[in-house]
């Protein structure tokens, strides 16, 4: 596999942020009451991550090492503000649903983490691939968790609020409200973490046996 493809695909399993690195859990817990909130938040974060990664990478030789964190935060905050205004203007439903968590992307440790660990040392193309892969991995994670919580907790599956919402469980289903409440987020995340870890252990074992 070429190294660029590797930088892209690692975000889907090896360093899958919420489930493998257990990073960036604040939005994971907060906005996954519906599948719509999950992918919306994921894509907003992906946009910020890709843009900040590329810009940090381009400026890596200009930014003095002593103030690099401050510079990264300025770059990240700028893109977050842009995303915030764009969502408010063009997808007000999503903006209303995510609320304060859009601004909180600034302090999402995945983004600052990638800037510090990857984009600050590598070229813009590799940084782009890295940001896109990890961002999409994050989006898929949020979407899956949102799907599970919403189907159990509300009986519906909202892909786009007001346009595409499927009543998965039928009208007779008594919603398990706990899953869409805050404690349900912890339980849902915990179960997901357990499953992903179990798969990870199995895969490692298989790999070792193959060697």
């Amino acid at each position: 596999m070429s190294s660029l493809a590797k930088e892209f695909t690692k975000g889907f399993w090896d360093v899958l942020p919420p489930f493998r690195l257990v990073l960036g859990l604040c939005p994971v817990l907060a906005v996954t009451a519906t599948a719509f909130g999950g992918w919306g938040m994921g894509l907003a974060t992906t946009f910020v991550l890709v843009c900040s990664n590329v810009l940090v990478s381009l400026l890596r030789k200009v930014i003095p090492a002593k103030v690099r964190i401050a510079a990264y935060i300025v770059i990240i905050a700028t893109f977050v503000t842009i995303v915030d205004m764009m969502l408010k203007a063009f997808v007000p439903d999503l903006h209303k649903m995510l609320g304060i968590f859009i601004q909180l992307i600034v302090v999402n440790c995945i983004i600052l983490g990638r800037a510090e660990a990857f984009a600050g040392k590598r070229g813009p193309v590799a940084s782009f691939a890295d940001g896109l892969g990890i961002g999409l991995g994050f989006t898929i994670s949020l979407f899956v968790l949102g799907t599970i919580r919403e189907i159990l907790g509300s009986g519906t599956w909202t892909l786009y609020k007001g346009l595409l919402s499927i009543n998965v469980m039928g009208d007779a289903y008594q919603p398990f409200k706990f899953m869409v409440a805050a404690p349900g987020a912890f339980v849902g995340l915990g179960v997901m973490l357990a499953i992903i870890t179990l798969i990870g252990i199995r895969l490692d074992r298989k790999k070792r046996r193959a060697q």
């Binding site: 103030v67 510079a71 300025v74 700028t78 205004m85 203007a89």
Partner: peptide, 20 residues
């Protein structure tokens, strides 16, 4: 570097604001 970066960020946000 920080001053220039912040100024550019300010211009960028102001530009997006004018659009949105």
């Amino acid at each position: 570097v920080l001053t220039v970066l912040c100024a550019l960020a300010g211009f960028g946000v102001a530009w997006v604001d004018s659009i949105t």
